[in-house]
Design a protein around this nucleic acid. Structure first.
Lengths: 146, 146
DNA sequence: AAGAGATACTTGCAAAAAGCAAGTAATCCT
DNA sequence: AGGATTACTTGCTTTTTGCAAGTATCTCTT
């Protein structure tokens, strides 16, 4: 079985970032602070595509860019991620505020539904704000604008 | 965070086997057909203990034996495992019969509760019969008896 | 139109982890 | 007492990961 997604350090994090942090590009992941090596990132994105969890489409506006997006199969991982998050918040000192998690645990289904909605409608707002979204301001541009 | 449980190929399988297959000993894992190497198994069991997910207690009856058991923190992984199982059954050709999974998906909470009950009351019956429980008949003895 | 910068990778090599086969110590069974 | 069972460990090979650097397009600025 291709349940290998669950046996890999990075794959699930990639899925999470696509799902809840609004990540779309290689660049987003590279500069997210997760610390994933670029060769591993390329490899995992490839495997996730092969597993049918992610799909890649070239950007219309900027031909250098690839957009990565969850498939239906990928978005169906939402409940798994949510349960992991709840478990982590309950048992590990994590960054997720406890009350928020308690709230999430009560409304699992609503939260999963909201995640699906945002994905369907390409609503880029991160559903877990404390994780932070992708850096929208690029490096050099930011330097120039400041 | 010790969310490394989720980034390892074997840790979650060990937890699953403790939880739903009624595994208790090193021997159970070694001969389960999962194919885990004994040094890795020893290491993962040690780490799971250190992470507070599993606890080890020497067997009363047989002093050679160690019994491994989930802690509260470990049994709290039940919802995560269940969601993985549901996902896997929906999207991967797995051994789990579809109707059974559909049923499980409908009664998530009841199933998690039943898992907890069996664990609390040390009811060894596997909750997912098609995965198979531990081999109760040992090798040589089986050969002799046949 | 040209050069600087951005994006999505690949390549080569070192370090870490996993896997395999064999061995060991304590305990049990007859 | 002696063989079997259980729970490991040890040493070595293979695979995977991680790091630094490089490359091929494409875009943006001047």
């Amino acid at each position: 079985m291709a349940l290998e997604v669950f046996g890999d350090r990075w794959s699930l994090l990639i899925v999470r970032d696509l799902m809840v942090r609004g990540f779309r590009t290689f660049y987003d992941f590279e500069n997210s602070g997760e610390g994933i090596a670029t060769n591993i990132l390329a490899d995992r994105l490839r495997r996730l595509c092969e597993a049918g969890i992610v799909e890649r489409e070239p950007d219309e506006k900027d031909r250098r860019r690839m957009n990565y997006r969850l498939t239906e199969k990928g978005i169906d991982l939402a409940p798994v991620l949510l349960e992991m998050l709840i478990w982590g918040a309950r048992h590990e000192p994590s960054g997720a505020p406890c009350e928020v998690i308690a709230e999430m645990a009560k409304n699992r289904d609503a939260l999963v539904e909201e995640t699906r909605r945002r994905w369907r409608e390409r609503d880029p707002r991160p559903i877990l704000p404390w994780l932070g979204g992708p850096q929208l301001v690029r490096k050099k541009r930011a330097a120039r604008n400041s």
